[in-house]
Simulated scan of single mutants.
Amino acid sequence: MMLNDRKLKILQAVIHSYITSAEPVGSRTIAKKYNLGVSSATIRNEMSDLEELGYLLQPHTSAGRIPSDKAYRLYVDNLMQIRKITEEERRKIKLSLLKEIREIEQVIQNAAKILSELTNCTSLAIAPQIKRSKLKRIQLIPIDEHKVLVVMVTDTGIVKNTVFRIENGVREEQLEKITNYLNSRLKGCSIEDISKNIDTEFVKDMYDLRDTIKDILPLINQSIDGMYEVDLFADGVTNIFNFPEYNDIARAKSFISFIENKESVVDMLLKSGFHDIEIIIGRENCYEEVSNCSLITATYSLNGKTIGKIGVIGPTRMDYSKVVSVVKSIAFDLNEILNYFIL
């Protein structure tokens, strides 16, 4: 059923009031706070209709009503006007993202931090999916006779540092020769194809170093395997306590436990899609632990490829207008900075 203009205005007023106060909203509150040109009795009747249509809920302990997930969905899709962020907020975003730009992970971590600060919600970000990233260079650096640092750098700015022990020992000049050979063979290969290119030909081509090569190749494969793990950044997890809905300690603990479960959070972020902006409300999320929350995410790209996601999660009563604006702004600046400094 399509809602008429009056019902839409009343529903929007209820949502605005509840987002601001966290208190169930009654018809008298709407009549006093919003100049809708109708009586409290008319508003009460319209709110009753909205409840029957599934847009409003009435908590058992209150005469007022609160928006349902259905109401929030209508609001963000059709009624919400995205609030512009302030110049001070924009400046803060830029300064934060420019703090550390040597490695892409640090840029993402900074973005998550500023996102939680500006929205007062918990921010989440997943670092680039790197299977299709290409190897820019590999470096084998001796630490001592038996320890080697393997440094792998991709074209998406990811740097993987791993220290390995070689029981038989290795000399610096040997590592330099192997490094040069590996770069000549592997540079430009996608990460997922490197293992396929590390074969017996390596041993044949560098027969004089065959014993060392046999020790080192498995270590490189281990380093590659470690790169496949998705990095998750979360910031402002305890911000959840700022919302009255989470004064219930058991409820807050359930939320925090979920956020600390990396596998579930990554799965949730990946399932939410890879659109420019995505809003998942309440029970639209498949995880029961966050069925009273909304997730707002945006993607970020490098060289035209979507490589990760960043966003916030918080109660369905969040200030969608502001949060969407901040998420969009950070994603935009993140894309700009990554493509300017990393490429």
Rank of each mutant, 00 (worst) to 15 (best):
I191M: 06
I191N: 01
E192Y: 08
K196M: 08
N197P: 04
I198C: 09
D199L: 08
E201C: 07
F202P: 00
K204L: 13
M206L: 15
M206S: 06
Y207K: 11
Y207S: 14
Y207F: 11
R210Q: 13
D211L: 12
T212P: 07
I213K: 01
K214T: 08
D215S: 14
D215A: 14
I216A: 11
I216Y: 07
I216D: 10
L217V: 15
P218E: 05
L219N: 13
L219W: 07
I220S: 04
N221W: 07
Q222D: 10
Q222I: 08
I224Q: 06
D225P: 04
M227N: 01
Y228C: 01
D231R: 12
L232F: 02
L232Y: 02
F233W: 12
F233N: 05
D235G: 04
D235L: 05
G236V: 04
G236H: 03
V237S: 02
V237W: 02
V237Y: 03
T238Y: 12
T238C: 06
T238P: 05
I240L: 13
F241K: 12
F241V: 11
N242K: 08
N242F: 10
F243G: 08
F243R: 04
E245M: 12
Y246D: 06
N247G: 08
N247T: 04
D248R: 12
D248W: 07
I249E: 14
I249Q: 08
A250S: 15
R251I: 06
A252H: 05
S254G: 08
F255L: 12
S257G: 10
I259M: 12
N261C: 05
N261P: 11
K262S: 13
S264M: 12
V266I: 14
D267R: 06
M268C: 04
M268Y: 00
M268Q: 00
L269S: 09
L270M: 13
K271D: 05
K271L: 06
S272V: 03
F274Q: 08
H275D: 15
H275G: 10
H275W: 01
D276H: 08
I277T: 14
E278Q: 15
E278A: 10
I279E: 04
R283W: 00
R283I: 00
N285C: 02
N285H: 01
N285L: 00
C286Y: 11
Y287D: 03
E288V: 07
E289N: 05
V290R: 00
S291Y: 00
S291W: 00
N292G: 09
N292V: 01
C293L: 06
C293G: 01
S294P: 04
S294I: 04
S294R: 04
L295H: 01
I296T: 05
T297N: 14
T299G: 09
S301T: 12
N303E: 13
K305P: 03
T306G: 07
T306E: 10
T306V: 13
I307R: 04
K309W: 10
K309C: 07
I310H: 08
I310M: 13
G311L: 01
G311T: 01
V312T: 11
R317T: 14
M318E: 03
D319V: 11
Y320P: 09
S321E: 14
K322A: 10
